[in-house]
Amino acid sequence: MRKKRRSGLKESAIKAFFFTSGILAVLVLLGIFLTLVATSFPAFREIKLGEFFLNTRWDPTSPEKAEYGLLSMIMSTLMVTAGALVLAVPIGIGVAAYLSDVAHWRVREILKPVVEILAGIPSVVVGFIGIVLFGPAIAKVFHIGNGLNALNGSILLAIMALPTIISISEDSLNAVPRAYSEASLALGASRWQTLVRVKLPAGLSGIIAAVMLGMGRAIGETMTVLMATGNARSFPHGFLEAVRTMTANIAIELGEVPYYTTHYYALFAIGLVLFVMTFAVNLIADVVLNKYQEREQ
């Protein structure tokens, strides 16, 4: 048997090259986290953590006393996100169930790429529609001066979260073993009963993961809420009020803030809060999804 050829070295080099590309994902994620931590840190020389999270007033440029309370924005983000999920979850699951259980396969083959088109619309265009279409419509329906408010943001975020919720829910419904539904149908259950009592519960973890991923997208979305929610800095009291989310606040203020001031660092601290929130939501989705895939195997 001939000894190892020189090619062994070349092969190892190639493998090392691909490995470097693979490990880059870990480095980027870690890099983002550490950058945010390092850049937010100086903010807390001046801001108390308690104030940052519990104060509702955000006014870094006040001539008397700069205030750095994030609570109003956190609440705004959560409110707009919750509103979006209330709208998107039932519709998204409904569409997923329609695609997997009602639609003829030919219809499904056409509709699935159509839903993907929705995912492809840039967020700035969605925000624009919020200004020119939904804003005036909301103003008219509720008899208010303008329609740039939390409700508008929720509707738009719902639309943006829909494609994610639909496609992952549909995958999980399709992954339910055929034997389950056949067993149910053979017992005389209707297709609807089978869907509601067998398939939806069996695909539940996938659907939960879909909702979590949609939620992560809604929390982190910037342009639509920036354009459509009115950006008032006050604590939100209802869906018809203008609100300012964390993402929108970064977008508004980072362009104007002088570098290396407490205000600048505070904006990175908001970024860190956003990162941690979306990370947690995505991680939960991941755990739920993994569990469900393990069970499938």
């Binding site: 048997m1 001939r2 000894k3 190892k4 050829r5 062994g8």
Partner: peptide
Amino acid sequence: EVDVVELRRR
């Protein structure tokens, strides 16, 4: 020391 690639050729 055996080259698996050469082995599979043989």
